[in-house]
Design a protein around this nucleic acid. Structure first.
Lengths: 204, 204, 204, 204
DNA sequence: CATGAATGAGTGTTCATTCAT
DNA sequence: CATGAATGAACACTCATTCAT
């Protein structure tokens, strides 16, 4: 009783351990490759505890994604803040850099949400389908602005451009752990390769 | 006796039905998300028949990949033939168009081989690791040539550029079945977006 | 809390039921002839429960063997205790009687461990290979002592004598359930038949 | 047409190849450890051919056993012939030697029939249950004669003595392939160990 | 809150058997 | 006669889920 609001309760800490373990394993193996017993073991707990806190595998994954989404959106907003609403090209560039940063430097949560395949046909992941939509639509707006301002070719559908950017960034980021390859390398490659259609990176 | 060389045997047709079912499901769900019972059911057969024809799940997948690889490489060669060895930029452009064509217009086999994730840590798919390598290294050479000729920025590592192109093309092609989106849309988007670093498409 | 140390938990009782069912079926059909579904059904459970308690078929069998081994060794030690270390012939006789007793009167666990074929080439039973070795080497020492003391012919290799004794005892014990045949019959037959090479049974 | 009775037909040769392969594998792995595909492969044939010649796995095994039985009985008769019907002790000794010889020197057929476990509870091998009975009852008569003549202790039931002898001989013969152990070693051990109850071996 | 225990459907795989050719 | 092909039941094992304690 008299719960201290500052100190997390024992239940909260258990919940956190489960989420951390799930995020780490999801980032490595994807939703299909991860088992609840694996997550529970990595968290030093029993699989039953997952059901108390989350109710199902899908709910657990959805929660991890939600945390990752929140983190990613916060990161994106931070990166966009210095750039005025008018300069759509610079804003899109900043978003690219933020996305790559998130993939290579932020927590597993961000990595999970950014690389999760779009769950088109998989009924078992219906729960978190809508979550992903928020991050994607944020990007669609950035692309639309850039197209309106002429910084990006106006021909292709904005959602298509967004998917192309996602695919390129995630593919390159997926190679970041190879020997002799640094996160900076990956970011530089994406920036340089996309320099044409997006215009030159603002810094020079 | 007097076997008609034209007519495939009953076994060949069964084998083909299994491969087709497997290719379709693999293109949709990936190797981990596909079950042999699902494939057999889609082919109107029993799971045991898979073991008669292929021996194991891995062998079946490897065979699908091999067919897709052969088809994709043939398609790539056809697309490159009209372009002289000297014009590395045009050749890379033609390869992009061929890859996208394969993804949206060729059989499921091509789609499987082109979108299969690189099997880094999964021991169970060791069989077809080397198969993928052939297609990838073909692309790496194309990129290297384009970098040497100045058609593509020489800064980033060629394999990185290749992965970026793969990611971008596959992501865009992955959306090809959405309502109101044609294969041509996807191809146009990739071409236009990459017009800068790759130079303008040869036709215009 | 305040766990009653006397009462075994529900899990312990389930584990025991599985072990008992496994021992009974193993004694009858051997490791290759036994299926986990058969064991689970005999125990009134699902096959999944075996994996919770033992992890694999081999582990289950190894546990049954270990229990049987412990029981058999205890029985052997009890039988040898009254006989002084000096009288090797009497000790070997007592061991024969103890082995036969174990086969016909003790639990299925003892029967399993005593009649299990030596797993020479079967890789899947590597786990319990070492377990059997303990009981066998115990017997080899008994035979060696008897050979040194002259109670048993010194010519043949001790391990060969041990195998001969095992074969004879197990074969006879294997017939113990035929109608009109008592455990005492079997024991008497072995004793009388081996009375020559081992010397007369100590009691007269 | 005009089949030459001397030369075996193609079908006979196929049948023989199957039987030989089956005998070899049965001697090594036992009836439960042998698969029809394994036998067919070892014979360079297809599993379907087994069903043409034998109708079922059980029938195939029964045929192998019958050949082994015939061979073993012939061998036993040859060994007994020099010994007059009156000397029951010498006859039993000769039988022991013949059995061991068959195990270590004759064909796989003999090895199969002599080491096959008595199929008490296994419904799938009901076919050849009666076959084994012939060889066993032959031995029972030998033991009964020896008991009547006083060469073997008259107390135990004759069938029990027979099983003890079988168990001892087969166990020892089962070790004949260990490094540094010759068939002669095994035979000598059995003879020496059983010298008491059976009386000394006739030769000395 | 969390655990230990158990379930039932599912996975890849093996195998005896059947049958058209 | 023999093969190539296919079946269906069984097997060892995994996993998401449930629930009494």
């Amino acid at each position: 009783m008299q719960a201290d609001l500052r100190r997390p309760s024992k239940g909260d800490r258990t919940r956190r351990r489960l989420l951390d373990a799930a995020a780490a394993l999801l980032a490595r193996d994807g939703p299909a490759g991860v088992s609840l017993s694996g997550i529970a073991e990595a968290a030093g707990l029993q699989t039953g505890s997952i059901y108390f806190h989350f109710g199902s595998k899908d709910e657990l994954i959805a929660t991890v994604l939600e945390e990752g989404l929140r983190e990613s959106l916060r990161h994106l907003d931070d990166a966009l803040q210095p750039h005025p609403a008018g300069d759509a090209g610079a804003r899109l560039w900043a978003a690219v850099r933020a996305h790559l940063d998130a993939l290579v430097e932020l927590s597993d949560y961000a990595a999970v949400v950014l690389t999760m395949p779009e769950p088109d046909s998989d009924a078992s992941v219906a729960t978190y389908r809508s979550l992903m939509q928020r991050y994607r639509s944020r990007w669609t707006e950035l692309v639309e602005d850039a197209q309106r301002s002429g910084a990006v070719a106006a021909g292709p559908e904005a959602r298509l451009v967004r998917d192309l950017l996602f695919g390129a960034m995630n593919a390159v980021a997926g190679t970041r752990r190879r020997p002799g390859r640094t996160p900076a390398d990956c970011a530089a490659a994406v920036r340089e390769l996309l320099a044409g259609p997006l215009g030159p990176p603002p810094g020079g």
